[in-house]
């Protein structure tokens, strides 16, 4: 179980610049949460903050509890023990996500060598086995190849295999569908859905992709968490005005985009009240103040509209 409590991230170059503000989230065992938001909303930074992989100038506050222990308070040695073994980060399968000079099998098997003392040969054999469970095809050949021969989708799934190989039960995936065509996305979805033992926290900007892999969706807008609900509720009955606009823009719902605009720049954060007020049709005088996260039943919404239903 992974509990994220009041997590905020800023970069010390200017501490007013908040990349993530006050995110609270619980990922239960075998739970699947998608973090949805547009580019720059802080999704990827959130994942890196949970893994303690951010650059040194990042200031992270709040708590990240992994089975009750705060990851943010761990030293490097303790972190090395949990990374890849209890909690895995699956980076985007872009061009440089795998070391170009090492065979893929060796890289996928590396967490086993590191955490469980396997020798290299066995770890490669095991990586073939894991890739088979992800249904990659030609697994033996893939393991003996170098990353540059891989397509984006293959690289992405090799990264997923790397995440689960050492028995890690929590997977943090960063935009696994980015840059892939529909067919490859389906293959990645297929691979992710084969992971029945693991819990998944997946960052994506693709709401349809999110709906295929998650049971809950957390919507981020401009660094702030604006809504958290089950996937079905988000898609069928979105509460926050931003989520509503986002769902309306899905092709199946008619692709209605009637409030074109951009998220405000991050440096006036916390001064201007609700981050969405510039584009929101339900904006009231109250919105000049930042709303807290209101509980609406099981759901969480950061909007003054739901103050009474709290």
């Amino acid at each position: 179980m992974l509990e994220i409590k009041n997590l905020s991230v800023s970069f010390s170059a200017d501490s007013d610049v908040l990349a993530v503000q006050d995110v609270t989230l619980t990922l239960p065992d075998k739970g699947r949460i998608a973090l949805v938001g547009e580019t720059g909303s802080g999704k990827s930074v959130l994942l890196l903050a949970v893994m303690c992989l951010l650059a040194k100038n990042a200031v992270v506050t709040g708590e990240v509890l992994l089975n009750g222990e705060d990851i943010l308070k761990m030293n490097r040695k303790q972190l090395d023990k949990i990374r890849g073994a209890l909690i895995s980060y699956v980076p985007q399968g872009g061009g440089a996500s795998l070391n170009p000079l090492m065979r893929v099998g060796e890289q996928v098997g590396e967490p086993l060598v590191e955490h469980q003392g396997w020798d290299k040969k066995d770890s490669v054999a095991k990586s073939v086995e894991v890739m088979k469970t992800l249904n990659m095809g030609n697994e033996e050949e893939l393991a003996a190849s170098y990353p540059h021969t891989f397509s984006g989708g293959m690289r992405q799934r090799a990264m997923i295999a790397m995440g689960i190989i050492a028995g890690s039960k929590i997977l943090l995936a960063d935009e696994p569908s980015k840059g892939l065509d529909e067919e490859r996305v389906s293959l990645v979805v297929d691979s992710l859905n084969r992971l029945t033992e693991q819990s998944l926290l997946c960052v994506t900007h693709d709401l349809m992709f999110a709906s295929r892999i998650s049971d809950h969706i957390c919507v981020l807008y401009s660094a702030a968490q604006v809504e958290f609900a089950s996937t079905e509720e988000i898609l069928n009955d979105p509460l926050h005005p931003y989520t509503r606009d986002m769902v309306k823009a899905i092709p199946e719902n008619g692709m209605i985009v009637d409030n074109v605009g951009f998220a405000p720049s991050h440096d006036d954060f916390g001064k201007g009240g609700c981050r969405y007020k510039h584009r929101c049709k339900d904006c009231t005088a109250k919105c000049s103040e930042m709303p807290p996260l209101f509980d609406v039943g099981d759901r969480k919404v950061r909007c003054w509209l739901y103050e009474d239903k709290n």
Partner: peptide, 26 residues
């Protein structure tokens, strides 16, 4: 700064191994 260095650290490799196995080779 390359992504595979982050990947290596995310696997739980200590700094020394990230440096010698992944960064140095490249």
């Amino acid at each position: 700064r390359e992504d595979y260095t982050t990947t290596a650290a995310a696997k739980g490799l200590p700094d020394r191994k990230v440096l010698f196995k992944h960064v140095m080779r490249n």
